[in-house]
Design a protein around this nucleic acid. Structure first.
Length: 497
RNA sequence: CGCGGGGUGGAGCAGCCUGGUAGCUCGCAAGGCUCAUAACCUUGAGGUCAACGGUUCAAAUCCGUUCCCCGCAACCA
């Protein structure tokens, strides 16, 4: 087992409010971070998230509201931070690309790569759409016009700086081949490998002329240019947790990242550009790049123009933070696309949380109250039935099952494991018929039976704590080692009729 | 011949890599039970695994062909 665990989400672009996709990535990362804190200790885990704030989109959006880009970004950052608070996201650090610590490292990176000769200048022809303030290359035009607004474009020549991606293509192909677990899920690994085998990478344009775009980090060797947003943003993963020494060597307690999570849409940047940038800097690549799927809204994907963007904060308020977290991680295997609907949330809520888990806790508490006046009895193995022994066994290895599932980001799998224990327990009640034991005064059997149930519930709380932190607390609050403190049902059923 | 994903009981999916009684969740029906949030437990109905052809003793699973659905400028999880 690793002695440290560094996990990142992408830096979310602040041009719009957070949606469920953002919340999905952070909830997944948070769950892994909480899990690992439990496994290897709080001090050995670092969970980074943050915001990406430069670039033309931001500048335009800010202009539209008559705000400075930074003030505009501040507003959106506030929304993200508020959301993470509501969703119980336990990040250790929140980095903004507008912070000095980041800008300094970006400048350093540019400087190192420039001196090394991996960044070069080039002048090329292209087309400019003045109303859109956008530069297009020939192949992007639509019938010779601006693909956005369909207006005529103007031919211009521009000088920019390029990063030598192509120089490192062979290395990357090799690295990927030698590290079959570098990119997950496997289908994405195939996708990237094939892409790299079939295509010759072109060098990456990493600058924008300042006269056209002021909102960015200036190139240290050419103040007339600012850095392209992706080049800027990716560097956050190292700028947040380390720095370069005088010799240009990167020093960090946390790097390389153990897992970098992202949506499938930005896999290319993370699986191709990013490792190559690191390679050029003589920094180790991340250990694992995991691209998860998208949440679709019924038949179509979520988009602003379709007006089907769902607010995660609204969902969390309506159904509760933990049910929302649970739903996202349970309903769809991580890596695949899912269908988002309130109906499916309600379904999961009622059947898994209210009926299975909530009811198990509630009925157990009632029995402890009724049969033992609120004192949790002590278990005596000799009074354990065969079924009880099986459950006890499951109790012992459930933690290991959850760990091995989470080791490969198998969130839904891990939860299925926990729920199989819950289902066993519910059946155990049914089969044991404690009400008969009570009538027949088989007190010892009854004690052991109840004691085992209490253990099951506490174990469920323990193993699901990383998914549903508040629920785990509530469970421990209600069923202590020796006494109980019964309050209402954990998850009151949602009546849909 | 652009690329990728997919077509499995009413719904959503797993199984396919490493062929061998078609499985899970939800829904539905009947029954059981009473500790419980009309919750829990059991049983049942329901599928020619998109179609056709091939390989094989044996195919949802491998091979080929066809049909259908979804996504594929940029930005975005």
């Amino acid at each position: 087992m690793a002695d440290k665990f560094y996990i990142t989400t992408p830096l979310y672009y602040v041009n719009a409010s957070p949606h469920i996709g953002h919340s999905y990535t952070c909830i997944a990362a948070d769950t892994l971070a909480r899990h690992m804190r439990h496994v290897i200790g709080e001090k050995n885990v670092w969970f980074l998230t943050g915001t990406d704030e430069h670039g033309q989109k931001i500048q335009k959006a800010a202009d539209a509201q008559g705000l400075s880009p930074l003030v505009f970004a501040d507003n959106t950052v506030g929304q993200f931070k508020k959301l993470w608070e509501v969703l119980n996201i336990s990040y250790n650090d929140f980095i903004r690309t507008t912070e000095d610590r980041h800008k300094r490292v970006v400048a350093r990176v540019l400087d190192i790569l420039y001196k090394k000769g991996d960044i070069y200048q080039d002048t090329y022809q292209g087309w400019y759409c003045t109303p859109c303030e956008t530069f297009w290359i020939e192949s992007q035009l639509s019938e010779g016009k601006c693909p956005d607004c369909k207006r005529p474009v103007e031919k211009i020549s521009e000088t920019n700086y390029f990063f030598k991606l192509s120089k490192y293509q062979d290395w990357l192909v090799e690295h990927i081949k030698n590290n079959p677990d570098f990119i997950k899920p496997a289908s994405r690994y195939e996708e990237v490998s094939r892409f790299l085998e079939l295509n010759k990478l072109s060098d990456l344009c990493i600058s924008r002329p300042r006269e056209r775009l002021g909102w960015g980090i200036p190139l240290p060797f050419s103040p007339e240019h600012v850095t392209y947003v992706w080049f800027d943003a990716l560097i956050n993963y190292i700028s947040a947790v380390g720095d370069f020494n005088d010799e240009g060597k990167y020093i960090s307690r946390w790097w390389p990242a153990d897992i970098q999570l992202m949506g499938k849409d930005i896999l290319r940047q993370h699986a191709v550009y990013w490792p190559i940038m690191l390679r050029a800097l003589d920094i180790a690549p991340p250990k694992l790049i995991f691209a998860h799927g998208w949440w679709m809204m019924g038949e179509s994907k979520m988009s602003k123009s379709l007006g089907n963007v769902v607010s995660p904060i609204e969902m969390a308020h309506k159904y509760g933070t933990d049910p929302y977290r649970y739903f996202l991680l349970r309903d769809v295997p991580f890596g695949l696309d899912g269908n988002f609907s309130e109906e499916s949330i309600i379904k999961r809520y009622n059947s898994d949380l209210a009926n299975d888990l909530g009811n198990l806790v509630f009925r157990t508490l009632t029995m402890i109250e009724k049969y033992f006046s609120g004192n949790v009895p002590v278990m005596q193995d000799q009074h354990l039935s065969a079924q009880g022994k099986l459950i006890k066994e499951k109790l012992l290895n459930i933690e290991q099952m959850v760990i091995s599932s989470l080791n490969v980001c198998g969130f839904s799998q891990a939860l299925e494991e926990v729920w199989s224990l819950i289902n066993m327990a519910n059946k155990y009640v049914e089969d044991t018929k404690p009400w008969n034991l009570a009538k027949e005064n088989k007190t010892e059997e009854l004690k052991t039976f109840i004691a085992l149930l209490a253990k099951v519930i506490r174990q469920v709380g323990k193993t699901s704590a990383c998914f549903m932190p508040k629920t785990a607390e509530a469970i421990f609050g209600q069923i202590g080692e020796a006494t109980i403190n019964k309050s209402g049902p954990l998850f009151p059923r949602i009546d849909t009729k």
